[in-house]
Design a protein around this nucleic acid. Structure first.
Lengths: 222, 222
DNA sequence: TGACGTAATTATGAATTCATAATTCAATTT
DNA sequence: AAATTGAATTATGAATTCATAATTACGTCA
């Protein structure tokens, strides 16, 4: 056999649908609080109602939508109460990811994170918010990978998808941005000496500050 | 209207099925690692495959079963790796529940917990393991309720259901049992003075010790 | 004009049907 | 006797169908 074996991936329809609908919600194409137009989505994706409804059930478990018996599916609202519930849990999970990462991270993984960190600093200097956000996400994702805990990753991602939209739209003040960058410096320092306690504390604080930013934004909205 | 308003609960079939199958798995009627007999379950519960498959999708998101495309559903195995992944996450969530509980708990809730705690001590004295476990669970559940965070509750329960079986079957040594009771005393003390940091620390340690018990049991199994 | 009640329409929950993939098992070959 | 092939069986994924619940539209009456 010439080519290396690739695992044949043939995901079922509903798996694909979960991904696609998640994106629709995160991108705001399905606004929070709106009804999920089951029939339209079926037509749009060219599938029948069976896999669509399976996908909606999955998204409901993740909390991205809520199902009302006999009344259909609704995109979960990003309310203040929602954020106040989700952020502390994300903070706890992120703190744990820091602890575990310090235990399990390899030197290559560390250097990769440092590299992304430096790239991110560049985007901060040029005030390139989009690229800053992207690299920022990459760092947190890399820490999660280094933590080496699939259960943690799954739980975290499910929560993150619920608030990602808010995290992006909420513009940071100049001070807040400087603070966030400074917190990232602290992370790298803690990670360098594999100090799990400190990294956990920084990540938790980082999340709390992010929450405060989003909170202010949400207050300004409604 | 004479009677107080009760929310009319008419859960859909798949919701009911999720509960029932969860119990089957937790009670060991569906052993870990075994195939989930979709057809038999349909016959047993008198439903068609549609709601059954929806229920299986939900359970897969929770991690209680895993779905292999075109090959059906399997009860997730309780391996050492699995436990090593789940327990730290549960520990982090339980710690958070302690912190939040200290912020939000009412005096009535606190007194209720103290009352269950005293009942549990009685079962410890008479070495009534079953009732000890039951009241123990009640205390942790009460703390979770006092934490006042639905997201946290949902996440915690999903994980707890995955390891509950192991937690029950793993018999505690006499020393371990004494230690667990002592940790519970610490919890009450911390809760009394609403010291979130301490309660979080105790709960995390409590979980780590529980993990060690289960770990020893699993090693002894083979 | 507005509130109420009824009919028509639409959407949802669940069963059934159908196509296809996976597994089993017997027959054949080495 | 073991391994391999291929047909038969079984299970799964998805579409369709059907019954019922919810919503909307309409007409009636105050």
């Amino acid at each position: 056999m010439q080519h290396p074996l690739e695992t044949i991936s043939r995901p079922s329809l509903h798996t694909e649908l979960v991904e696609r609908i998640r994106l629709l919600i995160m991108d705001g194409d399905l606004p929070s609080g709106s009804k999920v137009p089951e029939k339209d989505l079926c037509a749009q994706f060219g599938v029948s109602r069976t896999p669509m409804r399976e996908a909606l059930k999955v998204l409901a478990v993740e909390g991205l939508i809520s199902l009302e018996p006999n009344r259909g599916a609704w995109v979960s609202k990003l309310t203040m109460e929602e954020l106040e519930q989700v952020f502390p849990v994300m903070g706890a999970l992120e703190a744990l990811s820091g602890e575990l990462a310090c235990e399990h991270i390899t030197q290559e993984q560390f250097e990769e994170i440092v590299s992304i960190h430096k790239e991110m600093l560049g985007y901060y200097k040029t005030r390139n918010l989009a690229e800053y956000f992207r690299t920022n996400q990459l760092i947190h994702a890399a820490i999660l990978v280094a933590a080496c805990n699939e259960t943690l990753s799954i739980q975290y991602r499910a929560l993150a998808s619920r608030v990602r939209r808010a995290r992006y739209v909420a513009n940071m003040s100049e001070e807040r941005w400087a603070q966030a960058v400074s917190e990232h410096e602290e992370m790298i320092e803690a990670l360098k000496i594999r100090d799990g306690k400190v990294l956990a504390e920084v990540l938790k604080r980082h999340m709390e500050n992010k929450f405060e930013t989003v909170r202010q934004w949400l207050l300004a909205q409604g």
